[in-house]
Amino acid sequence: MSWISALAELQQQGQACVLVTIIEERGSTPRNAGSKMVVTADRIFETIGGGHLEYKAMELAREMLATRCQDTRLERFSLGASLGQCCGGATVLLFEPMGQPQAQIAVFGAGHVGRALVPLLASLPCKVRWIDSRENEFPEQIPAGVDKVVNEDVIDEIEQMPAGSYFIVMTHNHQLDLELTAAILKRGDFAYYGLIGSQTKRVKFEHRLRERGFDEALMARMRCPMGLAEVKGKLPVEIAVSIAGEVIATYNAHFGSETKKGESRVAKLLPASRRS
Rank of each mutant, 00 (worst) to 15 (best):
S165I: 01
I158Y: 02
D147Y: 00
E140D: 14
G145P: 13
P162N: 15
Q141Y: 09
I142Y: 12
V149D: 07
A144Y: 06
Q160D: 05
V146S: 13
P139H: 07
E159M: 07
M161E: 07
D153N: 07
V146M: 12
P143S: 06
M170E: 10
P139E: 08
D156R: 09
I155N: 02
I155F: 06
M170F: 10
M170H: 08
G164S: 13
D153F: 05
V146K: 12
E152S: 10
A163Y: 06
E140A: 13
V149Q: 02
E159R: 05
Q141T: 10
E140M: 08
I158C: 09
S165T: 00
P143M: 15
E152V: 07
N151T: 04
V149L: 10
I155T: 03
V169Q: 12
G145Y: 10
Q160A: 13
M161W: 01
E159Q: 10
Q141W: 04
M161D: 01
E159V: 06
A144T: 02
F167D: 14
A163K: 15
V150G: 01
K148D: 06
P143T: 05
M161S: 02
Q141A: 13
D153W: 04
D156E: 11
E157L: 01
Y166C: 06
V150S: 03
I158K: 06
E159N: 14
V169C: 15
I168T: 11
E159P: 05
D153I: 05
I142S: 09
V150Y: 00
I158Q: 12
P143Y: 08
I142G: 07
E157F: 00
V154R: 09
G145K: 11
P162Y: 14
N151G: 02
I168C: 03
M170V: 12
S165D: 14
I155K: 15
Q160V: 04
G145Q: 08
P143D: 04
V149G: 05
D156H: 15
I158S: 03
E152M: 02
M170A: 15
A163V: 14
D153G: 00
M170G: 08
D156C: 12
Q141P: 03
M170W: 08
V169D: 08
E140W: 06
E152I: 04
F167G: 13
I142F: 11
P139L: 09
F167A: 12
E152F: 03
I142H: 12
K148L: 07
I155M: 11
E157C: 00
M170C: 15
A144P: 03
M161P: 00
E159H: 09
D147Q: 14
M161N: 03
G164H: 10
P162H: 15
V154E: 04
V149T: 09
P143A: 07
E159I: 06
P143I: 10
I168G: 02
F167M: 11
P139A: 14
I168M: 14
E140I: 08
I158E: 03
M170T: 09
V169N: 12
P139D: 05
D153L: 08
E157I: 01
Y166T: 07
V154G: 11
K148A: 09
I155L: 15
D147T: 04
D147P: 01
V146N: 11
V146Y: 09
E157H: 01
A163P: 00
V150P: 14
